[in-house]
Nucleic acid binder design. Sequence first.
DNA 1: CGGGCCGATACCCTGAGGGTATGGCGGACC
DNA 2: GGTCCGCCATACCCTCAGGGTATCGGCCCG
Lengths: 295, 295
Amino acid sequence: MADLETRNLRYFVAVAEELHFGRAAERLGIAQPPLSRAIKRLEARLGVELLARSGGRVTLTEAGEVFLRESRRALDAVAAAAHRAVRAGRGARRLVLTMKPGGDAGLLPAILAAYEAMPGALPVEIMAGAGDRSAPLRDGRADVGMLHSPYSDLEGLDAESLLVERQVVLLPTGHRLAARPWVRLSDLRGETMPPWPSRPVGSIAGQNVIDVGQLMQLIALGRTIAVVPESVRDVMRQDGVVCRPVLDAPPTTVVLAWQQDNCSTAVAAFVRAATEVAVRAAASPPAGVPATADA
Amino acid sequence: MADLETRNLRYFVAVAEELHFGRAAERLGIAQPPLSRAIKRLEARLGVELLARSGGRVTLTEAGEVFLRESRRALDAVAAAAHRAVRAGRGARRLVLTMKPGGDAGLLPAILAAYEAMPGALPVEIMAGAGDRSAPLRDGRADVGMLHSPYSDLEGLDAESLLVERQVVLLPTGHRLAARPWVRLSDLRGETMPPWPSRPVGSIAGQNVIDVGQLMQLIALGRTIAVVPESVRDVMRQDGVVCRPVLDAPPTTVVLAWQQDNCSTAVAAFVRAATEVAVRAAASPPAGVPATADA
DNA sequence: CGGGCCGATACCCTGAGGGTATGGCGGACC
DNA sequence: GGTCCGCCATACCCTCAGGGTATCGGCCCG
């Protein structure tokens, strides 16, 4: 069982995700034949068939499924090694927090204040950006992240729930559903919806959704509608947009997540600060963010 | 930040462990100059100095410490990907248990019986061997392991304590301390002791200690003495060897450990079986393995 | 039965990475 | 303080892993 290079893993992950050698090769920036060879060699080295090429279809074998999951984890670990070392070398210890802009449900200021009041608190750097917010946690670019539970993949991360929210749909004022006090998911069939939870940042009619403000504009213009956690309503208001509860949408949870094996005391302190703030917020919710009524 | 290959990590880990390019190169089976170049390139790619070469001394920088830890973890993850995929491909789902022979404190038969009585239990394969028993857990060759707490490195593993044991010293009958009812650690200064907890399997006067039986023989022959958890006494008796409690030796804990991110139900079931057995054993200890008296 | 899609094979070629020889710098010892 | 020695860095060469192009072969579909 010779040494597996990360290149082998990257190649396999690409093929496993595309289930198509040609597209995977293109994504990797190489030609298809070397990729075929590489995968074949990989299978030979492991002594296991990872992909079933039965005619025009490529599918993952059971071993391939396992190897895909483990490979992703291993690649994350390699990336984390690099990022953590760089951050350690750049001196200036910091705690990096990753989040979607506006995704903190208004909790962040209080959490930051609580954390920074703790003895030995590090400066907190906020890393806001589009795309999958859990990736920076896995690959070591961030220490903690505010994620949204059903949307983000928490596999391999530790997490603490901060807040459970209902979801609302954002509609332009002139929309056919805007007159109703509430809607159901079935009412939204056939509407243009941004693929909010999907992995690559979604595009609506060619426009990339990169921040909540832009999304609001698009809604006001009648180009799309969106289902979002109700706290977004308070963070970002926009004329021409109304929100209506979606009764049967599953509730979202704002979770604070971090890498499982992270033994840093700074992360532990931040998590403690955040949960304390969350408990307090649940007890006495700020105006505009009503607590979920007891059943 | 170009792709880091596992080769880079392996090379760095070797140098970081040896703190000597020449020895590290020898260990890796390559010459020293390519190794120097590789490390230098690695540092250039990361943009961080990992090693401080100040005169004849090589030391790790702070970033190097971080990178060493993370690199080990990443290499384990890569190895785990390979092993898990192979095991998944070989069909025949099994639960692999790693342990030091005789290191189960007599708990194993009951644990196996309890686990196998559970619905959906997999066949258990026992992987006994010398060396570091936590490595197979990290690199995916084993699912669960019985480790000994102060001796095995549990970093990055989840673990459940099964049993806390006092330690005893094994002496040849003719030994100067054999006449005493108990000893203290200070009495053992200067004695020939196998480096039991050390990473490479220790050698006593050129003999590799590979199993408990051999160790017993060596003790009976007066070649060495050993401090071991008291349950070893019951698993393996030998004429010519007596055991005496070591009053001030730290107690050892038999722990059941597994990879943190392992979400397999089989592992969960095994852990549950083991803890139940351990609780029962603590309540009514079998003859010969007295429970630790309440303080 | 023919065309097109897609993975596998054949063959070449480039460059990353390994080897040998040697330089250069520090520390140690007399 | 000079010399020696240990050890990492540099210089230079060479080999082969891995990438590219061209093409084959099997499968599906019309």
